[in-house]
Amino acid sequence: MHFPTFTVVVAREANRWTATVTDGLEPGTVVNREFEHFAEVDAGMRAVLHGVTGVDPAQFYVRWRYRFGGDDVTGLVQEYQEAHRIAEEVAGWREGVRARLVATLNARISQRAIADLLGLSHQRVNQLAHRPVPEASEVVKPGRWVPY
């Protein structure tokens, strides 16, 4: 099955995020939208493309390009997005492991000792000790990352 691909260029103009479809539509079709927040661009443009083409968003690809001040900074934006995703996964893993460790050690050593081990305040350890503890199967170690 062939999924269409649309190229969308994102820029910052007059304190708004602008998104323009530059490739993938019928010749002469121009689609521009403005967004107040960057987080709205992806879903907003997928909805616009669905409305213009009738193609379900799960059935097309978007090739994002980012241009600011005349410069194409797509590579840097995508690298940041990947770094952010990885950091979120690692932070989630750390939080889960920490919660399980606090729960395991709480009946064995003092909360001050746990705090010293984890580099936290004993008040923070007390807060963690009173939260639900994730099951081991819920604490997933992120995969290995290979830079591209």
Rank of each mutant, 00 (worst) to 15 (best):
G51P: 05
V73H: 11
N106W: 00
R63A: 14
R131N: 12
L120E: 01
T20L: 13
A58M: 03
V97H: 10
Y61R: 13
P4R: 03
R100H: 00
D56Q: 02
L118D: 04
T104E: 08
H50R: 15
R94H: 04
F68P: 06
M1H: 09
A91G: 05
A39R: 13
W17K: 01
R85F: 14
A39L: 11
R98C: 09
R112H: 09
V30T: 14
R100K: 04
G75N: 14
E13L: 15
G119E: 10
G24K: 08
F60N: 07
L105C: 04
R65N: 02
V41S: 07
I114C: 04
Q78G: 06
L49S: 08
P134S: 12
K141W: 01
P27E: 04
D23G: 08
Y148L: 07
R98W: 06
S137H: 07
V73F: 00
T104D: 02
R112A: 14
L49I: 02
E79S: 13
T53G: 13
V21L: 07
N126T: 03
E34L: 11
E95A: 11
A115W: 02
V125D: 11
M45T: 04
Q127D: 03
L120Q: 04
N126F: 05
Y148R: 03
Y148C: 05
V62N: 03
V73L: 10
V30K: 12
H122Y: 11
R108N: 12
R16K: 12
A113L: 12
A87Y: 05
G96R: 06
L25Q: 06
E79D: 14
V31R: 14
E79H: 09
D23L: 11
R12T: 14
R144M: 13
Q111C: 03
V133F: 08
E89P: 07
L101T: 14
R16H: 10
